[in-house]
Nucleic acid binder design. Structure first.
Lengths: 254, 254
DNA sequence: TAAATTAACTTGTATATACAAGTAAAAAAT
DNA sequence: ATTTTTTACTTGTATATACAAGTTAATTTA
């Protein structure tokens, strides 16, 4: 018995391998600028360098720079004004809960604490899941976790997360206290959230939810069911989020 | 007494006037394709003509066509797949409530009826408004209206709208039954919603809201406060929306 | 001094071109 | 017949260029 090897040009293969994780220039610039906004190097209201300046700084042509900027504009990080320039938007981090980022970034990282209620465990998917699942997802099982998010020591979010166990080695061993699940996925697994869908309801607090969110039973609670698409084919993130909106509203840009 | 006329080249002025309402090519294509999707000429899952075909069909170059397509993709009308093509997304109309379009399009126009509770009237702005107002907005007064939206004869949305009275002649005379406010603004005033922000809460139904939405007092209701930016400088639309989410969820893509 | 014009920026729109990379079906090889 | 390769499509990335149009500040003009 022998293994048949496909007839390939190995130098070609190697080139492809090396180029596989190649990040396009416009995406590099996008990531740099987003990081600068996130880290406060550019603050709200600041003017970004002009497109021509960015061309010079990073050695690209204007269409490439514009591609990066329009990605930032689409996600609400900046707003472009003809004749003036690109202005950093007031609260890019607050897109959060209604957009691409996770709940950690939804409130600005400041006074948010995360308490793990149920550590990440690998379980079979629930019989009746809130979204339809593919066969691959069903087969690979589900990484399940429950987290309580406290803002100024008040419980605000109760998160239940479900992730298909696809290509995420050792994820159940990681620490999720005070870190965004999304950041971990991005930094350690190169998983980027690309979009998704959600359903929103106002519901009366159940016994469990009222206990965790320290509310009276039956008082109104915001309930989000979210399905998030990633750059990894077939990998979706699901979460069911209960929010105490008595004191804080959920804020979003669109 | 005489009126001093600015020294201008009138042919130049005329040219500018005529070009003033000129719509860019990519925007024309964007509008055409969006209309086709809205009207069901392209249905969910359908493949749009390829970029090169669109180039030929509409006499543009590929970058221009791509600009139109990426606008559609950003708003969730299509999804692009390298190597395959642009696929019409399952429920582009349902972006509605959480995105750019109005509530009429949020549920697909089908069984939605609109009942005017308070006809559009010009009033001064409320003392304590949910969003800060500019001086121009305050001075120009506020077009106010209340509408109840029924889905299959069940009251679902209670809309309170506020619009600054800037350059919207005769708007209080228009009929808003069963039509989207946004569509009227777009078709008659060339006002396009470009983005905005919103706050979402779960609150107990007040006496008024419970009456209109046919709910028990105190039962959970979704409350949205929205500020929408337009292409008209200084013109914002505001609305306060109460939703009965017992039967239906609010759905959104991001 | 005050108004108007000009100049020097900014982003917006558009063309033309080239090659990379993903997909799917036809064609060729086994 | 089955597998592999090729081919012909698709969208993605990138450059180079040009002019339009909005904004702001400096300059000129009255």
């Amino acid at each position: 018995m022998y293994i048949q090897v496909k007839n390939v040009n190995f130098t070609e293969e190697l080139k492809i391998m090396l180029n596989k994780n190649r990040i396009p220039q416009y995406k590099k610039l996008y990531q740099i600028l987003r990081k600068h906004v996130d880290e406060g190097i550019y603050r709200q209201g600041d003017l970004l360098p002009s497109e021509n300046e960015l061309c010079q700084l990073y050695g690209m042509t204007r269409p490439t720079v514009r591609q990066a900027l329009s990605a930032l504009a689409n996600e609400g990080y900046i707003r472009k004004h003809q004749g003036k320039g690109s202005i950093v938007t007031n609260m890019p981090r607050d897109i959060g809960i209604l957009s691409v980022s996770g709940t950690t970034s939804a409130v600005g990282d400041r006074n948010l604490r995360t308490k793990i209620i149920v550590k990440p465990v690998l379980i079979p998917w629930p019989q009746e899941f809130m979204f339809p699942l593919s066969d691959i997802e069903r087969e690979s099982g589900c990484i399940y976790m429950e987290r309580l998010r406290l803002l100024d020591d008040e419980p605000i979010f109760y998160d239940i997360s479900y992730i298909a166990n696809i290509n995420l080695p050792r994820i159940t061993a990681r620490k999720f206290e005070n870190r965004s699940l999304f950041k971990i996925l991005r930094d350690h697994y190169q998983v980027e959230i690309k979009g998704g869908e959600q359903r929103i309801k106002a519901i009366p607090a159940s016994a469990k939810i009222s206990r965790y969110l320290k509310l009276k039973r039956g008082s109104p609670v915001l309930h989000l069911e979210r399905k998030m698409e990633t750059n990894v084919n077939g990998l979706y993130l699901y979460s069911s989020i209960y929010c105490n909106t008595h004191k804080y509203s959920i804020f979003g840009r669109f």
